[in-house]
Design a binder for these strands. Structure first.
Lengths: 157, 157
DNA sequence: CTCAATGCAAATCTTTTGCATGCTA
DNA sequence: TAGCATGCAAAAGATTTGCATTGAG
């Protein structure tokens, strides 16, 4: 896997901060903000974690290199950019609950979205590369609790 | 249509600023930021347009009332919240080009997404209400120009 | 007159940038 | 030693809040 060689290879392919940022992101299964990534690194390495500035710069670099993708969860009140790994060959579906912030990977075999992509590519002449799908609604618990702030997002990329 | 009665009814159902915000949003076909909405109102009403604070508060109110929905376009470098009307009965597809910022409504008959929604609802016990799909890639022009920053998003809700 | 709505200015929060320092080849 | 990487502090930009004023009923 190219990611692993970037993380551990001797070619010095990435600055240390970017390696650690990519490593922290690959260890989590969810979309992470810069601050969340820093907290993760602090738990691993204590106060040796990179500064926020380095993390932001690393995220920018990694995105331009194509390893990660910036995603805005359409959370009500969510002002933070989040990042997730981009695995070109794979498709991931996530159920994200705003209340518990957990992100559950769905077992989705046939990708309905890619059928739509194909149609759009054919009709509009675009070359589509990735996509994000967010589903909003109420989970079963919130339907019972009548909690109107509950949120569900399905991210797919 | 409930929207129209909220906009023009005599029941004073909405504060003036919220009415005008909703009106400005309903006149545009795209997702709009607060500032864009203000510019739209300025073009219509000159300097009588509401202040940004009122627009932000109106957007918050309208979102809580369920008339509009906050959407973060996953633009590279886009830090702004955008809003779009929520029409429960209708489905809209948009092609959004970052460069020209135009949003083209697609003619999409059968909603592949809603099939996915149904499956997710059945399997996970969620009640889904709306969804956003953003497709990233390169348009034909950018493929020729070899401009790597070009961006396409398909929003669907 | 009362209370909601509004506007202005300041505060807040995330992200970016300037600049000086440190590290590595 | 040169150049990239990093950190700190300040800046930038969007959104929110405090507070005083306005305005409709």
């Amino acid at each position: 896997m190219a990611l692993i060689s970037k993380l551990h290879g001797k070619g010095n392919t990435l600055p240390k901060g970017a390696k650690r940022t990519l490593g922290a992101l690959s260890q989590s299964r969810s979309m992470m903000t810069a601050k969340e990534l820093r907290i993760g690194m602090q738990m691993t390495d204590g106060d040796q974690a990179p500064g926020l500035t380095t993390i932001y710069r690393s995220l920018d670099l990694l995105e331009r290199m194509g390893y990660i993708q910036q995603v805005h969860l359409n959370h009500i009140g969510d002002n933070e950019k989040r990042y997730q790994l981009v695995n070109p060959g794979e498709h991931h579906h996530h159920l994200v609950c705003k209340q518990c912030n957990e992100q559950i990977m769905l077992k989705e075999k046939d990708c309905l979205i890619s059928k739509l992509e194909t149609a759009v590519e054919a009709e509009y002449g675009f070359k589509l590369q990735s996509h994000v799908l967010q589903l909003f609604g109420l989970c079963g618990g919130c339907l019972q609790n009548q909690n109107p702030t509950k949120y569900i997002a399905l991210s797919h990329s």
